[in-house]
Amino acid sequence: MIYMQGSFVDKIRSRNFVITAEITPPKGSNPFNAIEDAALIRNLVDAINITDNNRGVMRMSPISLGKVLQQQGYEPIIQMTCRDRNRLALQSDLLGAAALGLKNFCIMTGDHVSCGDHLGAKSVYDLDSVQLISMIRKMESGFDFSGNKLEDPPEFILGAVSNINPLKKGQMLKLRKKATFGLDFIQTQAVYDTEMFKNFCKLIGDLETPIIAGIIPLKSARMARFMNANIPGIHIDGEIIDRLDMSKDPIQEGLDISCEIIKDISDICQGIHLMPVGQHLNTQKLLKQAGF
């Protein structure tokens, strides 16, 4: 597999393999820890996803952290959820981001407020992810949601997220709806069941949208069991759990497992998206081991 560092946008457009990674903004005003985390993967990834009040937990704005990381030489992908803003706020943030040179967005519904640390806050969902993508494409064509003309329409690279279970027919249908407005990439839920992932790729192959496979290295059998039980769309096989259970060094075993998954699927997808729990302490090791 050929992997070369370069602009995320160019690589996605020219159908080259991309590596992206996720960073969670700080709960506070100092971006230092996020910068430190990004430094661990400098020159190893093409772009960094920045989460948007992930799990409904209030944190620094991903647009602000995106600008900070961009100034440090990274290419950010701003995650944008439908949970916290109505159509006015979403559009004004999109225009603001474009003015800052932030053009890569990954659109998602967003975890419900009840998952997070601000119970009782209003869950907005004025638009859903399909409608948000459609609105952004309309903005690019020069009009705001209401049809008013925009001066200097923005341009974006737009991604969506997806579960990989083909049996989740409602979710598969929704992905198709998103794709009707043109998706530049799809980032998936973490892959552990590579057969399921292959079926997913086959199922949506006709969309011809680059698929970036989610990778979360497991750290212990406990973590695997927890994820199976609590994270929707995660399918970790008993065999994997046994390996972690029996290993003397479960962290390394988890990296080995991720590495095997990456090798198994990298020919059928167009990239991987690394979402370790915690910091990117082992990301370099994993990528090296996987041959990047």
Partner: peptide, 21 residues
């Protein structure tokens, strides 16, 4: 739907079909 979603489910629906919330 707690998210008022009109175009299909969110990704939070569990494998056995339970709502994220």
């Amino acid at each position: 739907c707690p998210k008022k979603l009109l175009n299909g489910p969110c990704g939070g629906c569990s494998d056995d079909g339970a709502c994220e919330t």
